[in-house]
């Protein structure tokens, strides 16, 4: 009897704690959209700087995601499938950018790619400027978001039983063709989800971008700029539009989860 009472109290406390956290996580965002969502969307019609920032954000995030997919897919496959000396160390090193504070990531990038660095100077000599350019934004986004793609893509490949590929090999496929015809389609949903997560992380990045490239401004930098220059009233519509933009990958991810594909077997 006492046990049942204790269980009931524990259930109520747990439910209360969960509700408080849910409210804490959703209420500020909901209030932001409710307060300034419509104003933000209306502002898109006449605020050229906001429009440009959103377009720049979408383009640079897409470019960073494309680069992440191009380089990350083979690397994720290698880490998921091949056993080699130092694999754990490589995997840990690739996770490091997720763990370090993003301004620190920006500083590290500035050190490696800034004008004073050998790489930055060499790139500048051939006309490629990293700091203060869209290229810099892409570099910052790639640095902080690609590890998320790698991690999720690695999981997606690991979920595909290697024996599918083995069968394809005995049916006459060389390694590359077996990958293209069997492994890639079976890992497709996981890879698309990984790319969406990377894109979402890229559009929300601020810390590393602001160190490497303050101008031209992406949406996150613009909202910060409006806040520090004009106060909360001016920053609100920009922030609200950014939240609405962030909903796109969220909806995409949900849609992917509902699309029960072959990988669910």
């Amino acid at each position: 009897m006492a046990d049942r009472g204790l269980y009931r109290v524990a259930s109520v406390v747990t439910a209360l704690a969960a509700s408080c956290l849910l409210l804490f996580l959703t209420a500020p965002v909901a209030e932001l959209v409710a307060t300034a969502g419509l104003r933000g969307i209306a502002q898109l019609g006449h605020d050229v700087e906001l429009r440009d920032a959103l377009v720049l954000t979408a383009i640079t995030a897409s470019a960073a995601t494309a680069l992440g997919i191009a380089g990350g897919t083979p690397l994720a496959y290698l880490l998921a499938r091949r056993a080699f000396r130092g694999r754990a160390a490589v995997a840990a090193a690739l996770d490091l950018p997720i763990l370090i504070p993003h301004p620190v990531a920006g500083i590290a990038l500035l050190l490696a790619l800034g004008r004073q660095s050998p790489v930055g100077a060499a790139l500048l000599a051939v006309g490629v400027r990293i700091t203060g350019s869209a290229t810099g934004i892409i570099c910052a986004m790639l640095f902080v978001a690609a590890p998320l793609y790698l991690s999720a893509a690695r999981e997606a490949f690991a979920r595909v039983d290697p024996r599918y590929e083995a069968v394809a090999r005995t049916l006459g496929d060389p390694a590359w063709r077996a990958f293209r015809r069997v492994t890639l389609p079976l890992a497709r949903r996981g890879l698309v989800a990984a790319a969406v997560v990377m894109w979402a992380r890229a559009i929300s990045e601020f810390g590393a971008i602001v160190i490497l490239t303050y101008n031209p401004k992406v949406a996150s930098v613009l909202s910060y700029d409006r806040f520090t220059s004009y106060g909360l009233g001016e920053a609100l519509p920009v922030a609200a539009v950014l939240v609405i933009l962030a909903l796109i990958p969220l909806i995409l991810l949900r849609a992917l989860r509902h699309d029960r594909g072959p990988a669910d077997l």
Binding site: R163, Y164, A166, R169, T170, L171, G172, P174, P262
Partner: peptide
């Protein structure tokens, strides 16, 4: 020799049919 150069056919107990392909496409795969 690599698996695709051995002229072998391998049938696992669980089949490992390619789930993204039809039955016909599975049989015609190789």
């Amino acid at each position: 020799l690599p698996p695709d150069g051995r002229g072998v056919g391998l049938v696992y107990q669980h089949g490992y049919l390619f789930p993204h392909l039809s039955v016909e496409a599975n049989v015609a795969y190789g």
